[in-house]
Amino acid sequence: MQVELDGHAAWVYTGGKPFDPSLPVVLFIHGASHDHSVWALQSRYLAHHGRAVLAVDLPGHGRSGGMPLPSIEALADWIARLLGAIGVERAMLVGHSMGSLVALECAARHPQRVSALALVSTAFPMRVSEELLTATRDDEPAAQAMVNLWSHSGLAQYPGNPGPGFWVARVNLRLMQRQRPGVMHVDFAACDAYSNGLAACARVSCPVLLVLGTRDAMTPPRAAKGLSAALSDVRVVEIEGAGHAIMAEQPDALLAALERFGA
């Protein structure tokens, strides 16, 4: 569905069902240079299992208009405004990579809006090497190729996203290529600059789930230890063999972790 927010169209996938605000709301936030479709399986499943699902396209991404927002804090506030615009009082936030920082910061800044957090493939700080950050600005194809290589654990996934017969590495690359020029640099710069992670953790009182892939080369489990130590109500699930693109590589394992957490 599409809603007007800040003078632009904000596009939200509702899991293949009309949005029903009377149901518990789960809001999915994609990562850098992505859109809602990275959550296709998890969001569609939950929408057909008693949840009202909102899988957003962040500003300037996918079908949403406007410019990409330059900071995690700005994105967090945008999520809160989006919930308000749709008339949702509280939602569970599920974020991937950059989206996990947005979810965390949103819970810290707008605790009344957030009932629980699931942070997938997360880390703090989420530093980006100078070389990669420069490439996102000056040579997007090279940056996309690097990120795509580091996002996957190997040459085969069972059975992949959105299903058998899809080559998830190329799906991921094409999705990055589909974003508008400049989006990648804004996103990666926002991840790199975000410094409020531990302070945000201290302000978060809702339950938090960390879902980490043991073969994640972008946000390895050790890079999330600071977060788990700083959170008061946290559970950590490590998915054996998963790379950074957990939603595509091990969709069922991620869904099971989310369901056990109460999504």
């Binding site: 399986l41 569609r44 040459l155 059975p159 058998p164 017969g165 080559w167 869904l255």
Partner: peptide, 26 residues
Amino acid sequence: NMERAGHVYSRISNPTNAVLEERIAA
């Protein structure tokens, strides 16, 4: 309903075929 990725019936998908499909796609 395509909420999960997997196989239902080999006319639509099959694990051996999926390897071939992903290989040629790669």
